[in-house]
Write a protein that binds this DNA or RNA. Structure first.
Lengths: 294, 294
DNA sequence: ATTGGTCATAGACACGATCTATAGCTCCTG
DNA sequence: CAGGAGCTATAGATCGTGTCTATGACCAAT
């Protein structure tokens, strides 16, 4: 579709026009002067126009050459900017990292890594998209995020999932239920108390519902909340027993504002996985972040 | 100074990104698919980044590729515009023609040619710069005009001058001097009447002064004017005898509002020359106009 | 399973970009 | 005025590389 079959000629033209000398242009381009002379001639022939006045002290643009230069100069600038930008992207001086996940995982798991990453590569813009697991998967497949951080298990042939963290969920309570402290509680007894669970469509919620059903019980929360922070807060205020990953409440267990309820059954651990699209290479920033996490 | 040694790769990249298919790009560029595949690979390697996701139904840009595309697209657009513009310049659909000369020559000599030229090439912008002969020569040497139209003789080794029109200067008068009609007048008698001449620094003025001096007379105008139109107008109003090229007053001679004064000496013809810079190729529009003039 | 599309790879070839060498020109200098 | 130092243009040889053909691997749809 283009009339000139070699854009290289424009590069030569640009340098020749810019420096006003074919010899100078040759130096800038690491070519010899005859090469440049020839290139310009080729360009002139292919356009059917004379672009330069040749004098014994260099070259100057003709009317037509001046017009051409005004376009080519900008075009070269853009390429030059593009190359700078690409170099920045390569060195992770620029770019973006888009992660999907739940707020709780961001806050309680990824936060320190994100901090470190941001300090190491301050030029990379971080985009944190929160959503449910299916939403995250959709985002990923649409290319709107680079990776997703969700609870396992994930079964999807398009996704590469790497298990990265094991969580031990448990029931916890605050001072209001101190009668349950230091004892082993049965599921039956547990269910006599108000239960605080994560909202219905979450992975963790489905897992615990399933678990109780396996033992022949139906778990029915008194309170449903949308964030781990509220699970913790409500338990502390004595509104009920929260079901939450032990790793997320290390501080509260430490200072005694919450205690773990020991059950007569073993609650299964859950896993956090990092999903990426199997078929698609990672961006520079994404692969660097993955590296950093492990 | 540039990191990528071949801008051709960007062209290939552009078409591949634009069409989302290496095969398609190959068709657009009149290449084979492996060539395109290889070119993209080369570009990716030289940038150190992956630009495309390859799938079995084409390619799509990666994050980095998208960034690159945003620059390259514009760059290609500019080149494409440049090529269009160059084509227009070549076909004289666009461009400019800058002529230097005196108002009188524009009006009485060039006007019909300018009209024809403008009708033939309406896209060409005409710039008419008037000035004295030395000014015109300066303009020409500075590259501010493409050609100059002035009275001969011009002696300047840098200039190519083509004689294009012979003018016969003569003295004319209007009805007020009808006593001079149908007679042969001597120079002496002529000088008894008020004379209207062009302003002092003009070629025509210098020529006539010189001529009279050769005959031993000193010509001293009663009125000096700055344009041929005023020469004509003042003569018609009877303010004196104007010295003017016969070719410029064809209409007035025809309708009888002016008549030529016959002298006992032969007034030398003068010539109009078209000057161009000897060392410098003409612009497309300029050479076309020269062609048209002859 | 077959077909038709995609992109990737390998290896051969030929064209053309680039080089060296030289010439012509203009300007400047001793 | 001769000679030198710039500049660009030209000619011809050479080497590199861009391009091709042929083929493979993969995927999706029939």
């Amino acid at each position: 579709m283009s009339m000139t079959n070699n854009y290289e000629l424009y590069k030569v033209f640009y340098w020749a026009a810019k420096s006003g000398s074919l010899s100078q242009a040759a130096k800038s381009l690491y070519l010899t002067q005859p090469s440049v002379s020839h290139a310009i001639k080729q360009l002139e022939e292919s356009l059917g126009l004379t672009l330069f006045y040749r004098t014994s002290k260099g070259v100057t643009l003709t009317q037509e050459g001046t017009v051409l230069y005004s376009y080519i100069e900008q075009s070269q600038m853009l390429i030059s900017l593009a190359e700078e930008k690409m170099s920045a992207l390569k060195n992770l001086d620029s770019g973006e990292l888009r992660i999907g996940g739940s707020d709780s995982l961001f806050k309680h798991y990824l936060l320190p890594y994100l901090e470190l990453f941001h300090r190491t590569y301050p030029g990379i813009r971080l985009h944190l998209n929160h959503g449910t697991t299916p939403e995250i998967i959709t985002f990923l497949k649409e290319g709107r995020i680079d990776m997703g951080v969700v609870r396992m298990p994930i079964v999807d042939p398009q996704l590469a999932v790497k298990e990265s963290l094991q969580l031990q969920d448990c029931f916890v309570a605050g001072a209001a239920f101190s009668g349950l402290k230091d004892r082993v509680i049965t599921l039956e007894e547990l269910l006599e108390h108000p239960i605080i669970l994560f909202s219905r469509n979450s992975r963790a919620r489905m897992a615990i519902t399933e678990l109780f059903r396996g033992y022949g019980y139906k778990i029915k929360p008194g309170i449903e909340v949308g964030s781990v922070d509220l699970l913790i807060e409500f338990a502390r205020k004595g509104l009920g027993l929260s079901y939450v990953a032990k790793e997320f409440i290390a501080k509260e267990l430490e200072d005694g504002s919450l205690f773990e309820i020991r059950l007569d059954v073993q609650l299964p651990p859950s896993h956090v996985g990092i999903m990426t699209l199997r078929s698609v290479p990672l961006s520079g920033s994404a692969s660097k972040f993955l590296e950093l996490i492990q």
